[in-house]
Design a protein around this nucleic acid. Structure first.
Lengths: 192, 192
DNA sequence: GTCTATAATTCGATAGAC
DNA sequence: GTCTATCGAATTATAGAC
């Protein structure tokens, strides 16, 4: 019995199971259509347990999407390869397990929930903008460049992972990295 | 029964009022959060009237978003100005009255309603792809180019009109036409 | 810790009076 | 043609037994 030192309690397993089910449901159905009942059923427990552990639906969502884009340090990438590197990073990220990528989950729900949209704006400000600021000195200019990059990257995620637009779904990652990467590169280092 | 002979009935005004209210609600709240009750209240009539005129919520939504992008004839635009022309077209379209632009309404609901996403794919296939096919002979190549254009244009719409990303909201239309237009131009006529 | 039971809302849709 | 009244279903959330 090592419950004292490493409290691997049954409650921890339940808690983790709820979170895993919640991530999958929120990713597939969005915030509103995902129900506490369905999440509980997936986790094999009672709906009231979800409330017990996470308080309410909003707090469960917040716990399910703790987003860390894990963006690379831009100063350690050859300046002329920033675009393709970033695009490859994002694609590789969500291509693995789309139901576990918080960015896709947020994107799916942001269109109909203002609080989620606000969260996405925060992530942009705290994680994306700083990376661009590392290679573009002027803050105002960096913000615009980062914003342009966001339009292209979020549009790619929408078309490939959410709208499932046939020609974009069919495209290979390498092809997307080449073409979209060139766009991102220009937004980052091209003329303004 | 006879819509041609008696065009100015009271019912027509009611019907139009419902549709106007529905467009605004669906545009602002998305399909799920927009309620029949709220639409009826906005139109100043009883909720049951909405059902009487449009059958159910899904049919009302379908009637509210009959999308005609009214894209220009690509063959009548100077080939090297296709990008900026298309971007300017879209911005001007939704900048006027965002609550009346069906494309934005569809985009807001597509992330959480598969039927709406399917509708958006149809619009892409029927209205966007043909325009590109007019300037790119090969069908497969045209589909890919059109898809890339879609990633950029829908991403721009998302960031500027739905997510309200600060640097993109603050950007002038002219600036967006210049930078995003250059991207679209490359997707249409650049090397593959 | 886990579940039963249920409260309190909200929504789409229907029936029928006038 | 318009409205009143209401049904039936689904949801979040709570109270409390075991």
């Amino acid at each position: 019995m090592n419950d004292v030192q490493l409290p691997a309690r049954r409650s921890d397993a339940t808690r983790a199971g709820i979170l895993r089910a919640a991530r999958a449901r929120f990713a597939g159905d969005g915030y509103q259509r995902a129900t506490i009942r369905a999440i509980a059923a997936d986790a094999g427990i009672d709906p009231s347990m979800v409330m017990r552990y996470y308080g309410n639906k909003a707090q469960l969502f917040a716990a399910a999407v703790d987003v860390d884009l894990r963006l690379p340090d831009a100063t350690r990438i050859p300046p002329d390869r920033l675009g393709e590197t970033l695009v490859a990073h994002f694609i590789q990220r969500w291509e693995g397990d789309p139901t576990d990528d918080a960015l896709l989950t947020l994107l799916r729900s942001a269109a109909t929930d203002e609080s989620v949209a606000a969260r996405l704006r925060d992530i942009f400000r705290e994680q994306v903008a700083p990376v661009v600021l590392a290679v573009v000195a002027d803050p105002a200019e960096a913000a615009l460049r980062a914003g342009l990059v966001a339009t292209q990257m979020l549009g790619l995620a929408m078309c490939r992972q959410i709208l499932l637009l046939p020609p974009i779904v069919a495209a290979t990652p390498a092809l997307l990295v080449a073409h979209v990467g060139a766009t991102v590169q220009r937004y980052l280092t091209g003329p303004l």
